[in-house]
Design a protein around this nucleic acid. Structure first.
Lengths: 339, 339
DNA sequence: CTGAAAGCGCTTACAG
DNA sequence: CTGAAAGCGCTTACAG
């Protein structure tokens, strides 16, 4: 089938190509009646303007990019990214923006992708995940002048816009809740140690435990996979003074931890309380259902997308604080058995 | 920062724009020495050809599209799609193709997306998931002449290329395995009934059960969510002659089913054997680990992408049979207690 | 092997 | 309000 062009529409409508362009883009320059007639004819012909031609004439690419730097197996199992993408998509689709996705294997490759996208004018802006300490992506994006919104922060985002959530506050709430239940030995299985939000959480955890007089507040680093979560849990539960509560940096590790506890003959929550960060439906699939730190991830993605569109539209890059994750108590937490 | 164009490179190299184009695209028309010099200069300037200009001059968009039609919550929780995307990506990235992703809410919207992408020349081809009976997307794509590869089949794909796996064979293997263990009352919690592969599985299940003389071979339809999987399981386990084994059409429902069984005081596998279709890492996170039908999903995606690139390149659309899922026995299956 | 030129399908000042 | 024209940055026949 041949694709109709603006010239075809112009011919059918008996006007110039310019007139069709004005009509389609809501610009002044055509009468209301003509505009309607052109729109009707365009719709009838199934005309969509070529995104390439449009992008080439100085208009935008009408696409934003998302590069995800995680090993493939982690990507698949963590509901977080797909939920984020759903939210981003919902916002973009409403404005007819496309989402260009690229999975990369390391930060250097991710930077190369940004440089290429920029050179190709393939995207109008990018969403940046998994902020690290001294993140090299930030100065590169600043230098390129490629509109960007960092999902994370608020520190370390340079002059880029950002959307972030107060992880420290959520962690403090969790520790206080566990202490109120009577727990004194609380441990944590953290995410990838390189990530800035892991650092923020670890520091908040240490500070909260110190303030509340908890001695053995240990964080075992991990990588978000169930495998590592299980290994870390085994280590913690085999130690001399085993913790009575463990906080996990994502739900997949928490589920793995639950399984390990049951395997070791520990009852959850009587012998061990478990809290999961990121409350995907997985948390309610297991038995007992997991107490979790809940957030609306699709909304988070939607906010990031909206902000990116604003920056692309010329708005000043700003930081936006999103909802703080809130504790949703379920069956996996209770006072420790021994009291 | 200003983006270098082909003219900038040509000027620096002291040649014409045409020469630069030939050099970059590996076309004859420049000497080896000149070509190398041009490539060096282009690399040094950080030049990437504008994808828009390239697409407009008749070359391809260098992008393929994937529209996913599932409710957001299902997308997030099912590892399948992210694993598929990882595999697709790996194949595309090697050829510098971009992946354009769009989440849609219903089949009509998905068709509209295809029409728009086609009109916009935004993608060179599309990957089609979740084939249905009398799928309306197939004739539309045929009519548009938009290169496409259906992930599913082999029936119902019309003249489109496809990549498929023999689900019927995998299901037969599973039923025979359960019967060999001594099970006589086997049930199944199926996926969305509208999907063609659900139909294929249901029919294979019925036929296998009939052949083996199993009377109560019931399939309860579901929607892949843990919620529905749990509900279906409760229904099955509350029935008069409750099954001693249940086959689930995905791993999320199987995990939910495991949880329900434990909640109802049934031991897995002694009182109930469980088999999950799709063997994501989730299956090994729970206790007992789930017997599952394993397949290499990223490879499946990679094969689909490779085939799409072939069709885009002018190859005749063909059907490719991928690996059949194979049963991986784990702790969730055993002979039934009563024998 | 190289250069000059047309053309892809739009957008957008610029005359009328 | 409308039409003719330039220009975006490439690719690709077409002469030299």
């Amino acid at each position: 089938m041949k694709r109709p062009t603006i010239a075809d529409v112009a011919r059918r409508a008996g006007v110039s190509k310019g007139a069709v362009s004005y009509a389609l883009n809501g610009q002044p320059g055509v009468s209301a009646a003509t505009r309607q007639r052109i729109l009707d004819i365009a719709a009838e012909m199934g005309f969509s303007p070529s995104s390439a031609a449009r992008a080439l004439s100085g208009a935008s690419a009408e696409a934003v990019g998302l590069a995800l730097c995680r090993p493939a197996r982690t990507l698949g199992i963590e509901p977080f990214f797909m939920e984020l993408i759903s939210g981003v998509e919902a916002e973009l689709a409403a404005r007819s923006y496309a989402l260009t996705l690229q999975v990369v294997t390391d930060p250097a490759a991710e930077i190369a992708v940004y440089r290429r996208w920029w050179g190709e004018r393939r995207v109008d802006g990018v969403l940046v995940c998994d902020l690290r300490t001294d993140d090299r992506r930030v100065p590169v994006l600043e230098e390129l002048g490629l509109p960007a919104v960092v999902i994370g922060g608020p520190a370390g985002t340079g002059r880029l816009a950002s959307v972030w959530s107060d992880d420290a506050a959520a962690l403090v709430e969790t520790v206080e809740y566990l202490v109120a239940l009577g727990h004194r030995r609380i441990a944590r299985v953290g995410g990838l140690p390189d990530l800035l939000h892991t650092e923020i959480r670890t520091e908040a955890f240490d500070r909260a435990c110190r303030r509340l007089g908890l001695a053995d507040a240990v964080t075992v680093p991990s990588d978000y996979t169930g495998e590592e979560g299980a290994r870390a849990t085994r280590r913690l539960l085999s130690s001399a003074a085993r913790p009575t509560a463990v906080i996990y940096d994502n739900d997949v590790m928490a589920i793995a931890g639950l399984s390990v506890a049951q395997e070791m003959g520990l009852a959850v929550p009587a012998d061990l309380s478990i809290v999961a960060w990121d409350d995907s439906p997985l948390c309610q699939l297991v038995h007992p259902p997991l107490t979790a730190l809940s957030r609306d991830i699709p909304a988070y993605g939607a906010h990031a997308a909206r902000q990116l569109l604003a920056v692309i539209g010329g708005a000043d890059p700003a930081g936006l604080q999103d909802e703080t994750a809130h504790l949703t108590p379920r069956g996996s937490t209770a006072p420790p058995r021994s009291g």
